[in-house]
Design a protein around this nucleic acid. Structure first.
Lengths: 158, 158
DNA sequence: ATCAATGCAAAGACTTTGCATGGTT
DNA sequence: AACCATGCAAAGTCTTTGCATTGAT
C-alpha cells in the first residue's frame, strides 16, 4: 500500500536537529538522525514497519525498538501524527508546518488523501468556547470511497 | 478509566434487532442480543475488554472472539465508531442517531467529552466538492487538556 | 437441512520492556 | 564521568483464526 501525502516539511530538521532535540532534553544520535532524514524524503504515510524495512533496505538499519521509541518522541513533540486506519495498523505522518488538514481515507483501497479545511478556525473556537479545554491539536478523518473505487464499483454493477 | 458520553441511543434496537440484522444477512443470536443490550444501557465509551468483563460480571459472558467479531460488524454497520486514544487501546462508542459530533480527548487523564459541530455541513461539502470522494462519515478528534487537568497543572506550578 | 455463529485454544501482529553495551554531552 | 540511547531477546497486549460444536432460519 503506497499512499501519497503532501511533501513532508521537516525542512532544516537535520541541521537544527541537535538544537531541536537538545532543547527537549533528547540526544542527537545516529538512529534519530537516520529516522529524521528518512521522514524528510518520505512523501507518504508510513508506519513503524515500513520505516524499519525501508531503512534496512538502504543499509541504514535502526532497530525496531528504537523506531518505536523515536516515533513516540516525535509524536509527543507533534512532529508526526499517529492515526489508525484499521486494526493493528498504525500510520504516521509528518505534521510540522501543516496542521490544518484532515485525511480522506478510502475504506476500499486504503488510500489516504489530505484535504485542507478552510474554516478550521471556526471549529477550533467553537470547541474552545463551549468546553473548558486547552486545545492542542485537531485530527479530522473522513471515511468513504475514493474516485477510482467508486468507478470500479460502478463498473462491477453494470 | 470511566468516561461519560451522551446517553447511547440504540433505541428500539432490541425490538427490531432481528429485522435489523436480518436485513444485513446476519443472524440474531444470544451473543449479539447481549452485546446490543449492553450498549443500550452503557453510557460511556468502552472497549472490547471492558465490554467483556462487564458482561462477565453480570453472568452474561460472551467470549472475546465473539465480542471482537460483533464489534467489527457494528463498526461496519456504523452503529459504533472505533477510535484510538493510545497504543493498544481502542475505544468504541455507539453512533446511532448522532453522527455530528467530535471528541475532546484529554491527553493527561484520558477523559473523553463529546462536542457538537455546528457547521459540519460546511466541512462535508468542502470535502466532497474538492475531492472525488464518496463520503461515508467524518471523525473529528480534538486533543488537549481538560479543565481539571489544566487546573491541576496550574496548582503544581504554584 | 443448511449455513452461520460461538467458544476454545492457539497463533498472530504490533509494541514494549529488561538489561548489558555503546554513544553523547 | 554521568547519563541517555541502542539493540537484542523476551515478554506483553490486544486481536484474529482454525476448527469442532451449537444454534438460527
Amino acid at each position: 500500500m503506497r499512499i501519497k501525502i503532501h511533501s513532508p516539511t521537516l525542512d532544516g530538521a537535520n541541521n537544527s536537529l541537535k538544537d531541536f532535540l537538545g532543547a527537549k532534553g533528547f540526544k542527537s544520535t545516529r538512529g534519530r538522525r537516520i529516522i529524521f532524514k528518512e521522514l524528510e524524503t518520505r512523501g507518504e504515510h508510513f508506519n513503524a514497519e515500513s520505516l524499519y524495512s525501508g531503512l534496512s533496505e538502504k543499509k541504514q538499519r535502526v532497530s525496531k525498538p528504537t523506531i518505536y521509541r523515536t516515533l513516540k518522541i516525535l509524536e509527543k513533540l507533534r512532529i508526526i501524527e499517529r492515526f489508525d486506519i484499521k486494526k493493528n495498523c498504525f500510520y504516521y505522518e509528518p505534521l510540522l508546518h501543516r496542521r490544518e488538514h484532515g485525511h480522506l481515507i478510502c475504506e476500499e483501497c486504503g488510500k489516504i488523501v489530505d484535504f485542507s479545511i478552510e474554516d478550521f478556525g471556526t471549529i477550533e473556537s467553537t470547541i474552545v468556547k463551549e468546553n473548558d479545554f486547552r486545545l492542542n491539536y485537531i485530527s479530522i478523518r473522513a471515511f468513504g470511497l475514493c474516485d477510482s473505487c467508486v468507478k470500479a464499483s460502478k463498473k462491477q454493477q453494470g
